[in-house]
């Protein structure tokens, strides 16, 4: 029982840190996907007196990425139904030019306002509509959820680190005497730490395997049936196999730091 407890005391905090790291990576990727979606679907509308080329818009602001003219004839045909041809031509002549303008990245409302100002500085540009408020509100909500989650992950990581430090105290108590005797007889550091490393690496592997099981369950079972569009559509991308490598390496790094910290905080033999 004590044996299991001793191991769980290290495995559980380590697992919490690994889960936190995985959640962090997943949410980073989800946010990037969401931002990409917003960026690709977002356009602002530019109204100009005369036709305007993409290069001219780019000169006004470097974030302008694409420009697609809206067919004026179609607008006129819809608003001038029942009018004769010459009236339609008059309306077409008086109608300004409309463009859907895309940006190179996701922008906040304040940045959109700056772009609007840049574009409107050209006398040829009559009006710019950014649709900024709608665009920003959903992203702000998403960012807020992400911030709360990151805060929770950070809190979990800090608590887990404290638990690992507590376990290091237990290790110190358990292994200090053996390490001291070995040091007196001239054992090099790595030999003295051998037993501790074996214990810690086994714990790291157990934590890594548990993490992998959770990972595979979420990826192949839960994600497809989650009912959350962005996760269902992108579950392959959200949790990547390379994450497992990252997590195993992180677990080993934590183990190495924990074992060496235990050794260096133990009272050495030389006084």
């Amino acid at each position: 029982m004590k044996f299991i407890k001793n191991h769980l005391m290290f495995i559980l905090p380590l697992l919490a840190i690994l889960l936190g790291a995985e959640f962090f990576m997943v949410f980073e990727r989800t946010t990037q996907l969401y931002e990409k979606g917003l960026k690709e679907s977002y356009t602002m509308m530019v109204v100009s007196h005369k036709p305007v080329e993409l290069s001219q818009l780019k000169e006004l602001n470097r974030h302008i990425h694409s420009s697609e003219p809206i067919q004026r004839e179609r607008i006129v045909s819809q608003i001038a139904k029942g009018l004769n041809r010459s009236s339609s031509q008059e309306i077409l002549g008086a109608l300004p030019y409309f463009y859907n303008v895309g940006l190179d990245s996701y922008m906040k409302t304040s940045a959109l306002d700056d772009i609007k100002l840049d574009l409107e500085s050209d006398p040829n540009i009559k009006m710019v509509e950014t649709f900024g408020t709608n665009h920003d509100s959903s992203y702000r909500l998403f960012s807020f959820i992400k911030f709360i989650l990151n805060l929770f992950i950070l809190f979990m990581a800090v608590v887990s680190l404290f638990l690992i430090m507590k376990q290091m105290e237990v290790w110190k108590y358990t292994h200090e005497e053996r390490m001291k005797v070995m040091e007196i007889f001239g054992a090099p550091l790595m030999l003295r730490l051998g037993v501790l490393f074996r214990v810690a690496i086994v714990d790291a592997i157990v934590a890594g395997v548990l993490m992998s099981l959770i990972f595979f369950y979420v990826k192949f079972q839960w994600a497809e049936r989650s009912g959350i569009d962005i996760i269902m559509q992108n579950h392959e991308m959200l949790m990547e196999i390379t994450d497992l490598g990252t997590l195993f390496i992180s677990a080993l790094l934590i183990v190495i730091v924990a074992v060496f910290s235990t050794a260096f905080t133990s009272k050495g033999v030389r006084e």
């Binding site: 053996r178 001239g186 054992a187």
Partner: peptide
């Protein structure tokens, strides 16, 4: 060097200093 020296010393303690889990 100190480690090397210690490998050439035989040390005996009053409280034995044996490793109890070995």
């Amino acid at each position: 060097k100190l480690q090397d020296l210690r490998t050439h010393l035989g040390i005996i303690f009053q409280d034995y200093k044996l490793i109890n889990e070995w």
